[in-house]
Design a protein around this nucleic acid. Structure first.
Lengths: 156, 156
DNA sequence: ACAGGGCATCCGCTAAAGCGGACGGTTGCT
DNA sequence: AGCAACCGTCCGCTTTAGCGGATGCCCTGT
């Protein structure tokens, strides 16, 4: 339904801001915070994987933004966050519909209906759709927030 | 019925195997399975993002294996799995149990029905459930693979 | 004043992600 | 037979993730 704007302290948005957020969380005091060279060294030592100072800076400054699977896992491991942390924001721009769906599927019966509707013919689906819509009207529920799928969003 | 451990060895952490697994889940009968060209077309159409036939093949055959964030999200969205599926093996096996549901929801009409069924009274849901089950019998489809109930965790 | 270490930033390189356009092989249709 | 459509596979190309090695700026110590 609503894109609940959660404003913890987590900077929503670009990957660079997430990384900076994680960095300043790891080193709250600006003074003690090491440079990118030492940070990269820590990452290498702690995760056993590769990480260069230059690249770390490029990420933090937003010059590179399309991480690779390996790098993603490495950073997630170092910062102690699930790898999803770097992804869910990208997903977030598209999951408003999914969120409603996930919510609806909390009901076991709704889920069973969805499962059994799969594979039925188009005509039957139309009939069922009409029924459930009518039932919704009878029970005086508001119209479902039906978000279409072909989102002609073109950017990036 | 139970979310038992499938005997078909699921992806040992190799990306190619996960992709092939998802592909054969999407198209169980190999007769109807389109080639990589058409599959890439579907991905492009459904997600609105880019995906080439060549690259899809390279992934499925294991020639390229270090996905980028963008590609990761695109594939996850298309297959209806969380992006972590490709990152975390534990998540992968857990999600496999829910794949039937995700598969069913790929049909827009089924999705609409599920959305509109949410909030209806229990009695109405029972009636609808009976209808859709009956429709399934009439159209001579096998009984829906109603897996137990892994909870749809989604919060925070 | 000078030396030196740590810092952010830049430059140029390599390896690989990702794609377009081939090439042959099989299938089915007329 | 021919053809058209589809398939998997390969090749070559552009882009960019990712890194090593400068460069120059601030420090602090001597």
């Amino acid at each position: 339904m609503g894109p609940q704007q959660r404003r913890d302290e987590v900077a929503e948005g670009v990957l660079a801001e997430k990384i900076n957020h994680l960095l300043s969380r790891l080193y709250p005091e600006k003074e003690s915070r090491p440079g990118y060279a030492k940070l990269a060294g820590q990452i290498r030592e702690q995760t056993g994987k590769a990480m260069s100072a230059t690249y770390l800076w490029e990420l933090a400054s937003g010059r590179k933004r399309n991480l690779t699977q390996d790098t993603l896992v490495t950073l997630a491991e170092f910062f102690g966050v699930p790898a999803e942390y770097f992804l869910d924001d990208v997903v977030a721009s598209r999951v408003d519909a999914q969120l409603d769906l996930a919510l609806a599927l909390r009901n076991q019966k709704v889920r069973s209906i969805a499962l059994r509707a799969e594979g039925l013919s188009d005509d039957t689906l139309d009939a069922l759709l009409a029924m459930v819509t009518e039932a919704r009207r009878i029970e005086r529920l508001g119209p479902a927030t039906d978000s279409g799928e072909p989102r002609p969003e073109r950017d990036e």
